[in-house]
C-alpha cells in the first residue's frame, strides 16, 4: 500500500518536473527565436512573406467560411432572445460585441491551431526526422534563423489579420440574417452597433488578444515540431499535442487577458 502510494506520488512528481522542464525549454526556444531574428533582416522578411502564404493565405478559406456561419448563427440566436424583451434592434450590438471581444480572436486562434499549427509542427518534425535541420547546421546555417524565425513571424502577423477578417465577415453574416431575413432596419443595426462598440475598449483589445494568441499558437506549434522525437510516431504525437496545448493555452490566456482588460 505504502509502496503504491510512493510510486503514484513519484509518478506525479516526475510528470510535474517534466512539464516544468519543457516549459523552460520552450521559453529558451522563444528567446532564441527572438535573438536569431536579427541575424539577416532582409532574408528574414523575404522568408516571412513566403511563410505567410502557408500560414495566412491557406487558412483564409476555413476562417472566412466559419466566420460567416458563426455570424449568421449569432444573428438568429440573438434575434430570438432579444425580441422577447422587445429589443430586437440590438441584435447588431450583440453580434458585433461577441465577435470583436471574444469569438473573433478565440475561434480564429482555435482554427489556426488546427489548420496552420498542425502543418507547422508536422513540417518541422519531418525536417528534423529526415535530418534536414542537422544538414542545415552542418552547412553553417542556423536552423532557428533560417527555418523557425520566419514561420514564427508569419504566424504572429497573420493571426491578428485573420481575426480581424473573421470579425468583419461574422458581422456581415449577422447583418445578412438580421436585415434581409428578419427585417430589422439596416440603419438601427449599424448605428446601435456603433454607439456600443468602443474602438479602444473592444476593437483594440480584440487585436491585442489575437496578437497574444498568435504568439502562443505559433510558438507551441514550432516548439512541438522542433522538440518531437525523430520518428513517425513522435511527429504524429507532437501534432496532436500542438492542437491540445494550443487550444488550452488560447482559452486560458483568453480568461487571463479578459479579466485583466475588464479590471483596467
Amino acid at each position: 500500500m505504502l509502496k503504491r502510494t510512493t510510486e503514484t506520488l513519484r509518478g506525479i512528481g516526475h510528470r510535474f518536473i517534466n512539464r516544468i522542464w519543457r516549459l523552460g525549454t520552450a521559453a529558451r526556444f522563444f528567446w532564441r527565436i527572438l535573438r536569431r531574428s536579427t541575424d539577416k533582416p532582409m532574408r528574414l522578411i523575404k522568408l516571412t512573406v513566403h511563410e505567410m502564404y502557408a500560414t495566412g493565405v491557406l487558412s483564409l478559406v476555413i476562417i472566412l467560411v466559419s466566420a460567416l456561419f458563426v455570424g449568421m448563427v449569432l444573428g438568429l440566436q440573438g434575434y430570438n432572445t432579444l425580441q422577447r424583451y422587445g429589443s430586437a434592434d440590438a441584435v447588431g450590438v450583440l453580434v458585433a460585441l461577441s465577435l470583436v471581444r471574444e469569438l473573433g480572436p478565440v475561434v480564429t486562434a482555435l482554427l489556426f491551431a488546427g489548420r496552420a499549427g498542425t502543418a507547422i509542427t508536422a513540417e518541422i518534425g519531418l525536417m528534423k526526422t529526415t535530418e534536414q535541420l542537422s544538414a542545415m547546421e552542418m552547412m553553417a546555417v542556423n536552423p532557428i534563423a533560417r527555418v523557425i524565425a520566419p514561420r514564427f513571424w508569419a504566424g504572429v502577423i497573420s493571426m491578428p489579420l485573420l481575426a480581424a477578417m473573421f470579425s468583419m465577415v461574422g458581422v456581415l453574416g449577422g447583418y445578412l440574417v438580421a436585415v434581409p431575413l428578419l427585417g430589422i432596419d439596416a440603419g438601427s443595426f449599424w448605428s446601435q452597433m456603433q454607439t456600443s462598440v468602443d474602438f479602444r475598449v473592444d476593437i483594440v483589445n480584440g487585436v491585442i488578444k489575437s496578437f497574444v494568441f498568435g504568439v502562443a499558437c505559433t510558438i507551441i506549434a514550432l516548439f512541438e515540431g522542433y522538440d518531437a522525437p525523430p520518428t513517425a510516431e513522435g511527429v504524429s504525437r507532437a501534432t496532436t499535442r500542438t492542437v491540445v496545448n494550443s487550444s488550452l493555452a488560447v482559452l486560458g490566456l483568453d480568461f487571463a487577458l479578459t479579466s485583466f482588460m475588464i479590471s483596467v
Partner: peptide, 21 residues
C-alpha cells in the same frame, strides 16, 4: 568559429537530407 570550420566541410547525410520544400 565552429561555423567558420563548418564552411570547410561538406556532409552527405544518410538519406540525403535534401530540403523537401
Amino acid at each position: 568559429g565552429i561555423y567558420a570550420l563548418r564552411r570547410k566541410m561538406g556532409m552527405l547525410f544518410q538519406f540525403g537530407a535534401l530540403f523537401t520544400d
